[in-house]
Nucleic acid binder design. Structure first.
Lengths: 355, 355
DNA sequence: TTGTACGCGTTATCAA
DNA sequence: TTGATAACGCGTACAA
């Protein structure tokens, strides 16, 4: 009856490696080895140690291990702060895909928000330079920089998601928005449409630029100038997708010469736009064809069902995560700095022939 | 020109406290003190240290600090794994509110998924027992338990969100679903409705139980028995909200005696249900009134605009987080184990008088 | 007010 | 195959 150390099942947070060692009757370092390299220790003692660990409900202390090995097993995902997760269906979807991949690979996911204010930048830099995270996925266009610290120089692998940052040497996984919208517009042109109405996202946003370019390119292919498109929206951030659609509807209603085809840069915009113009008396697709971006599930249940360019969020999130982990572990094989994943155009009844 | 240790601005991950100490010409412990308790050190040396830290871009190592002080500054949010973040608007919204609160209080947010499989339970327990996280917010009904470890005994504060776990001593922040649906149904009864159609979420789900109970209670108040409600759905998990609505529509179509009012337990269900029954020829609200749960922004743009019971996700997330942190820091003041936040019934055109 | 010395729980090196 | 021992970077008694 000596130090039986009755650390039975229901102990607070304790049960150290030393406890396991004592119970198994071996040295602390042997426990460590048995747990990390089961092969490099005698099978019988390994089993004894495993049993002891199990009995004590031993869990290695993460901070101690991280400190010792000099790295953590946490990946952070940097989200633009101005964007409500719920507003654009995009974010929650990638978040989920990313999370799944991260966990599957034995890592943990931490959320970070990058706003326009210095404190959020500082916060992210602390996470990076303080060794809390080992890699970063970023969905924002600027890498945080404060004083003489910059994320680019933090020495941790970064992969950009959705935004093409390959030119600044940040590996990027993106979708072919430009191509996707070009194909959709091509179909609209074949249906006889000649005048387009484009509802933009936040001005200067990468996707907006790409998508608008795709539209203009498709027009060019058909010998139509940029004058055939009326731009709307572009004044609000993504979180106000519905509001943007409403404003665009009012804008549309005031137009002298009415476009007959609408390209919206998010489903939210398209949905509220459609709702309002229908209320005003226009019929979709009879008077007006509508196509948008994102592929939100709800599009299928709109009246009429909304055509949309589906963003492959699952693939995007998974690919980016795997890539990041490969870089973190030094098992990278991609020579390129950019990976493009195809979007899918889902044609539904919101599109019809021009009349 | 001795060890000038030119760790200038753009160094990988280094810049230790020792470097700062050397540059400032003080002892390492003085640096620690200057950074933690600026008051307990001479102002001039404090300034010198601050300057040195700034110059070196010093960032404290999180693992070392956590190890030393015996706690981390990470909070985990445990999400039910079977539920796509994007499917129910609920999750992304609380996630965002929680994240904001967590950051504002100087903590970090880690995502954890709790599935039905043992590995996900084990993963969460590792996070808890390994000291990676200091507190947990949980949106799942069961606390993970594997072998002789259980989250309840991990010694870390937990707060449940959305689900009432107060009976098992887990502080819970919930909404008054039961009351909300009772009031909505009361309105429907006043409008003359007598036969109800209830579209359930996953069977046994807490919300489902509460909401159905509210419906039955309202009927009881009006002297109507439970026989006045036809139950549908209930066979799929939340991630299939739209599918559930479609199945419910088919179920509805096959009914001998048609209900005139529908209560759906999520907006997704209501939207797809409405879409399909409208396609079959029923008019909303002329033939059928519809009300649902969640308060998704998109409801406003449905045809007709969908009545919904808005869940106060912002308040919910923020309240739960603040509560958790108070428990973590020992500054708690709530004596109760439950905090209820009111839902708001948003009445729109999907509801009308019975005819 | 500042410096010295020790320990947090692990992993890794080196002998035994 | 195993055990003693020294770090990892920081915080905090305690002494100066």
């Amino acid at each position: 009856m000596k130090k039986t150390e009755n650390n039975s099942s229901t102990e607070g947070s304790s049960a150290l490696m030393a406890d396991v060692a004592r119970l198994a009757g071996v040295a602390i370092s042997t426990v460590s080895r048995a747990l990390a390299n089961p092969g490099r220790v005698n099978e019988k003692t390994r089993a004894r140690i495993a049993a002891a660990a199990e009995e004590l409900g031993y869990t290695p202390n993460a901070a101690a291990r991280n400190l010792r090995v000099g790295k953590s097993n946490v990946i952070m995902i940097i989200l633009p702060g101005s964007l409500h997760y719920g507003a654009s269906q995009i974010i929650p979807q990638v978040l989920e895909a990313v999370n799944r991949s991260v966990i599957r690979n034995g890592y943990n996911l931490m959320i970070a928000n990058l706003d326009r204010d210095e404190s959020s930048e500082r916060h992210i830099l602390d996470l990076a330079f303080g060794g809390t995270v080992r890699g970063a996925l970023i969905l924002s266009s600027q890498l945080p920089v404060v004083a003489n610290r910059s994320l680019a120089e933090a020495g941790l692998p970064i992969v950009s998601l959705l935004l093409d940052m390959s030119e600044t040497a940040v590996p990027s996984v993106i979708t072919n928005d430009r191509l996707a919208v070009r194909q959709a517009v091509r179909e609209l042109i074949e249906l006889g449409h000649r005048r387009f109405f484009y509802i933009a996202g936040p001005i200067g946003n990468y996707h907006d630029v790409e998508r608008y370019a795709g539209l203009v390119e498709a027009l060019g292919e058909a010998g139509l100038s940029e004058a055939h498109v009326t731009r709307s929206g572009g004044n609000l951030s993504f979180q106000f997708g519905f509001e943007t659609g409403l404003q665009a509807a009012d804008h549309f209603a005031g137009l002298e010469e009415k476009p007959t085809a609408v390209v919206a840069t998010s489903d939210d915009m398209a949905i509220s736009f459609m709702s309002r113009v229908q209320k005003m008396g226009w019929r979709v697709p009879h008077d007006l064809s509508v196509v948008s971006f994102d592929g939100s599930p709800v599009c299928e249940y709109c009246a009429p069902p909304l055509s949309t360019i589906e963003q492959p969020m699952e693939a995007l999130g998974e690919t980016a995560t795997e890539w990041l982990i490969a870089r973190m572990e030094g098992t990278e094989s991609h020579p390129e700095m950019r990976l493009t994943i195809a979007s899918r155009f889902i044609r539904r009844d919101s599109i019809g022939a021009h009349r």
